[in-house]
Simulated assay, not measured.
Amino acid sequence: MSTMVPPPFDPELAAVLEVIKDVLPREFTMDDIPALRQGPGIELLAQLDLTMDGAFEVEDRLVPGPEGAPEISLLICRPEEPVRPGPLPVLYHVHGGGMVVGNNRVGVDAPLAWARELGAVVVSVEYRLAPEHPHPAPVDDVWAGLLWTAENAKEIGGDPDRIVLTGASAGGGLAAALALLARDRGGPRPIGQMLLCPMLDDRNDTPSAHQMAGLGVWDRTANETGWTALLGERRGGADVSPYAAPARA
Rank of each mutant, 00 (worst) to 15 (best):
D205K: 07
S73I: 00
G226V: 06
E132F: 09
L75D: 00
A130S: 13
V23C: 05
A113D: 09
A209G: 11
R235G: 01
F28P: 02
P136C: 04
K21S: 13
Q211V: 13
E126F: 02
R183C: 09
V90N: 04
L230D: 06
A115S: 15
P87F: 07
L230S: 09
A238F: 11
R84G: 08
L165R: 06
E12R: 11
W143D: 03
G214A: 12
L36F: 12
A46E: 12
M30K: 09
V23E: 09
Q38R: 14
M199T: 14
S124P: 04
K154Q: 14
A15N: 09
P160V: 07
G186H: 07
T3H: 13
N103Y: 00
M30E: 13
G171W: 04
D161P: 03
P64K: 01
V142N: 01
C77T: 06
P8G: 09
A177Q: 05
A130M: 02
V164C: 04
Y92S: 02
R61C: 00
S241I: 05
E71R: 00
R61K: 03
H133C: 06
V19I: 15
L75I: 01
P8L: 08
P89G: 01
F28L: 05
V23I: 13
P87M: 07
L45Q: 14
